[in-house]
Simulated scan of single mutants.
Amino acid sequence: MRSSALFTRTAIGALAFGLSTAAFADTWRYAHEEYEGDVQDVYAVAFKDYIEANSDHSLEIYRFGELGESDDIMEQAQSGILEFVNQSPGFSGAWLPPAQIFFVPYLLPTDEQTVLEFFEESKAINEMFPELYAEHDLELLNMYPEGEMVVTADEPITSPADFDNKKIRTMTNPLLSETYEAFGASPTPLPWGEVYGGLQTGVIDGQENPIFWIEGGKLYEVSPHLTFTGHGWFVTASMANQDFFEDLSDSEQQLIREASDAAYDHTMEHIQGLAEESLAKIREASDKVTVTRLTDEQIAAFKAQAPQVEKAYLEMTGKAGERLLEQFKADLQAVKAD
Rank of each mutant, 00 (worst) to 15 (best):
P109H: 09
D162N: 05
A161F: 08
F91C: 10
P187K: 02
I168H: 05
G65L: 08
A99S: 15
E60T: 12
V85R: 07
D56F: 10
H136N: 13
E83Q: 15
A153F: 08
D72L: 00
T114C: 07
G68L: 02
S159M: 04
M149T: 12
R169T: 12
T114M: 09
G147Y: 00
S186L: 13
Y50A: 03
I101E: 02
T110W: 07
Y62H: 11
F183L: 03
M149R: 08
I125S: 03
N173P: 03
T158D: 10
V150P: 06
A161R: 13
A161D: 14
Y144S: 02
L96P: 02
Y133A: 04
N54H: 09
A182V: 07
E178R: 13
S159L: 11
E75R: 10
P156C: 04
D111Q: 14
T152R: 03
Y62T: 10
E120T: 07
P174C: 06
D49M: 07
D111M: 09
E148K: 11
A77E: 12
F129V: 13
G93I: 12
L116I: 15
D137E: 15
M143F: 04
T158G: 07
F163D: 11
E139D: 08
P156D: 01
A182Y: 06
E146V: 11
Y106D: 01
E120R: 12
